[in-house]
Simulated assay, not measured.
Amino acid sequence: MDTKDKKIFTASSADIAEKMGVGWNYGNTLEANSGGTPSETIWGNPETSQEMVDAVADAGFNTIRIPIAYLSKIDDNNGYKIDDEWLERIAKVVDYCYERELFAILNIHGDGFHTITGGWLLCDSDEQEIIKKKYKAVWKQVAERFAEYDEHLIFESMNEIFDGIYHDPVKEYYENINDYNQIFVETVRESGKNNTHRWLMVCGWNTNIDYTCGDYGFRFPDDAGNTAEDGRLILSVHFYDPWDYCGEEEKDVFLWGEKGMEISDEYGISPDNVANWGDESYMKYQFTRLKELYIDNGIPVVIGEFGCIDKSIANMGIAGKIAENRAYYNGFVAGTAAQNGITPIYWDNGFNGCYGLGLFDRRKLIQTQPHIIDAIVKGVRNKDPFAGR
């Protein structure tokens, strides 16, 4: 694609959320790996395709987040050079999004997990000098490769970086995360061309709302190299609350919120099967915090991941109602985010059925969860938390 012929997009902080609309993650694909070697299909999904991107666009999504793993594709013995074929494959996927005039978000995703062989972007490591040098080198190459792409391409600094232990942030390690964000911003800006005013996403400890909004040590990076007339930084957070409903397979919590309580009452389901925290009021509170701290101060916010796994199997007698409740939850996230000027991006891992998060069959190129898709898209379009009701 000749990106020079593309219109230079100059959204302001006041309208970037409106233009990004509603988003979808092309998850478990370009960040998939085996033993530290990235492989697009190793986690069971087919290769990324224009046809799949078309299906997502046709469903009403405006933004696609493309998680990336570099890992062994980085040559530590050659100035941290990224494998040319891998970088060009990433570019091809970005071009798929450009063909449909979608926003595309690229990050460093799989390299920051302690659980992945070859993970190196580790805030608790003693090798910070090497890590920061490598991190700068990677972003320099990515920025230079995409320097002429217009502002529909957004870079995101990293993904869920923390020390791998679920506790309050460690100040020393949080400072390393702050340093990563600063290095990222400065490196992209220094690469010139459209990167001097490209939208950049940064995140705090584990991309967690509480640890970003609270007094835990998050420092928003300086962006002195930005040549736009207004800010070009976006805050990135994730939202999977309540986790026992959204992500835990072991716990028998398969209903959520007011609708979940209604289903429980109507069908005689134990209240123990309804999440006992993280309801509608909690979600509203969290998103209002983001609005007041960031959006009201000219800093856009993106929920880079949200979603809840399919637990219909938990009670087959009301499987349909569990599915309805799932659509309600996702619509409530999307609509409440939109009400607060926040861009929501659903996490799709490509897997359907029990405990899956897929919205599409990526081989048949069809929607598998049309009610959830409808709730998310309409929730954002109409700024309506009850779109999935």
Rank of each mutant, 00 (worst) to 15 (best):
W199N: 12
K132D: 14
S191N: 14
V188L: 14
K133D: 15
D150W: 01
N226Q: 04
Q182N: 06
D163C: 14
M158G: 07
E229M: 04
V202D: 12
N195W: 05
K136W: 00
R189Y: 04
K134C: 07
I131F: 02
A143W: 05
K193V: 13
Q128D: 05
K171Q: 12
I165T: 15
E229S: 13
D150G: 04
N206V: 04
D210C: 03
D124R: 02
T212Q: 08
N206W: 09
G204N: 00
K134M: 05
T207M: 09
L153V: 02
F218Q: 08
T207A: 15
G204W: 01
H197T: 12
G214E: 13
H167P: 00
S125V: 01
I177S: 11
D230E: 15
K171H: 06
Y174W: 01
D126K: 05
I165K: 13
F218C: 10
E160C: 06
D223A: 07
I154S: 12
C203R: 02
I177K: 05
G204E: 02
D150T: 05
W205Y: 14
D222H: 09
G192T: 12
G214Q: 08
Y173M: 02
F146W: 04
V202S: 08
R189Q: 09
V185G: 08
K133L: 11
M158R: 03
E229T: 13
I234W: 10
N176F: 03
Y180T: 01
F162H: 15
F220L: 12
E156W: 03
G231V: 02
N194W: 05
T212W: 01
F146V: 07
I209R: 03
N176D: 14
A147T: 07
N159E: 13
C203I: 01
I130N: 09
K140L: 10
A147H: 04
H167R: 14
K132E: 15
G192R: 11
K132V: 10
L235W: 02
D124T: 03
T196R: 14
L235R: 05
V188W: 04
F220V: 01
T187W: 01
V188A: 09
K132W: 02
I154N: 13
E172C: 00
V202C: 08
I165N: 12
G164A: 06
R219S: 11
F155W: 08
A224L: 07
Y149T: 05
V188G: 08
N195S: 06
I165R: 09
D168V: 10
H152A: 02
N178M: 07
P221N: 09
Y173I: 00
Y174I: 02
N178E: 12
Y174R: 04
Y180I: 03
C213K: 00
W199R: 11
S157N: 09
E229L: 08
I209G: 05
A147F: 00
F146C: 09
E148H: 13
Q128S: 04
R219W: 00
F218G: 10
E144I: 10
Q128R: 02
D215K: 11
T227K: 14
G225A: 11
R189F: 05
Q128W: 02
D215S: 14
F146P: 07
D222N: 13
G217W: 04
N159C: 13
G217I: 05
Q182H: 04
D179V: 10
N226W: 03
K132P: 00
I154A: 14
I130Y: 09
V202K: 04
G214S: 06
I234R: 07
